[in-house]
């Protein structure tokens, strides 16, 4: 049986074996605080993804510059 302290590491482990999944699910089933922790982790992941998604798009000139550098390199 996992302890609450082992739950964060168990949540990170990928891929999880069948045994890992059962141990984790069983613990989360009986432990409300660890379920709250799992929700926090999910919220953080969503927040981080949103941070990347909402970052300003690259200047279109940047793509041109990179392709230009590539063409110049090819000529050399």
């Amino acid at each position: 049986m996992l302890t609450c302290r082992q739950v964060p590491d168990a949540l990170e482990k990928e891929p999880k074996s069948f045994k890992d999944k059962v141990q984790l699910r069983l613990h989360l089933f009986i432990c409300e605080r660890c379920r709250a922790l799992e929700s926090q982790y999910k919220a953080i992941s969503i927040g981080l993804k949103r941070l990347i998604d909402t970052a300003p798009p690259a200047n279109p000139e940047l793509i041109k510059k990179v392709l230009e550098d590539f063409k110049n390199r090819k000529k050399d």
Binding site: T3, R33, C34, Q40, A43, I44
Partner: peptide, 13 residues
């Protein structure tokens, strides 16, 4: 290795 009494993760959502 269990949560201490009175400690609980807060809703950060």
């Amino acid at each position: 290795g269990h949560w201490k009494t009175g400690v609980s993760p807060k809703p950060i959502d």
